[in-house]
């Protein structure tokens, strides 16, 4: 399937920016069932300083805000060909060891609720069946609800309060999988939605390591394993490693964030 993506992120500042940096993880790679046919990133209000591959092989760019700017706009546009692998990503690549994906992070630190959740599926012997059961449980127990959580919300909090967005679903699944001894990682990316072109945020899901199939993706929010409608962009231990944009800014003043996203065939 050929997917066309246009993703625009705009930051508006109420006072001119003196010094600010932004780290972008917004470039998909070819591989794992996807081929990047073309991809471009246009930036205004800031200047790209450098690019590198981070510890999870994410293609990362560093931007420096143009002095005195009041807007920074990052516009990614491209075409990606995808195939349906039924969620199977397969073998582990890169130098980041598998055990790293077992370590807890601030967002995935387990508490009593996550332990309870993990116990509920611990009866399943087969890893894959156990993860499917886990995904269903999370879908049932954490209602999809925008505006109730933010990027720092922990998995334990989302599960306890019973609502969240795709990011929270992924964090809960990652935390529970790790409790059960399965390496798990966070994926940020894009999803072609049925009959909807205009989206207001990019998507997130998770992948769990199985001894038989290697990495397998689970999108709790949509109750499926990713197929040809998905484009993987960045990965890591949790949102913090794979965030599309991470910034630091000196000085006072507030900022306003606006995202427009179109994913279509």
């Amino acid at each position: 399937m050929r997917l066309r993506i246009s993703h625009k992120t705009t930051y508006s500042y109420d006072t001119p920016v003196h010094y600010a940096l932004q780290q972008l993880r917004l470039r998909p790679r070819t591989g794992h069932g996807q081929t990047v046919v073309e991809w471009s990133t246009e930036i205004s209000g800031a200047t790209r300083q450098l690019s590198f591959e981070d510890q999870f092989s994410n293609q990362t760019d560093l931007l420096l805000a143009d002095e005195g700017t009041t807007h920074i706009e990052v516009h990614c546009e491209g075409v990606v060909d995808t195939t349906d692998t039924a969620g199977v990503i397969g073998r582990h690549k890169g130098f980041a060891p598998l055990w790293l994906f077992l370590n807890e992070t601030t967002r995935t630190k387990p508490g009593p609720e996550l332990r309870r959740l993990a116990r509920e599926v611990s009866g399943e012997d087969d890893t894959l069946a156990r993860m499917h059961a886990l995904s269903t449980l999370i879908y049932d127990q954490v209602a999809y609800d925008t505006g109730t959580t933010d990027s720092d919300t922990t998995a334990e909090t989302a599960l306890t309060e019973g609502h969240g967005v795709c990011q929270d679903h992924a964090h809960v699944m990652i935390a529970a999988a790790r409790l059960l001894g399965h390496p798990a990682r966070y994926i940020s990316g894009y999803l072609l939605m049925d009959g909807i072109v205009e989206q207001d945020a990019s998507h997130a899901w998770c992948e769990v390591w199985t001894d038989t199939l290697g990495w397998v993706g689970f999108d709790v929010s949509n109750r499926i394993c990713p197929d040809e409608r998905y484009v993987r962009v960045a990965t890591g231990r949790d949102y913090g490693d794979a965030a599309p944009i991470l910034g630091i800014r000196q000085g006072a003043g507030s900022e306003d964030l606006h995202v427009t996203l179109q994913v279509q065939q």
Binding site: E53, D54, Q55, G94, F95, L100, L102, N103
Partner: peptide
């Protein structure tokens, strides 16, 4: 492996 895996002195940002 455990000595490295659970060790705060191991810096994932240095991988690679």
């Amino acid at each position: 492996k455990e000595l490295i895996a659970g060790n705060e002195a191991f810096l994932p940002e240095m991988i690679g």
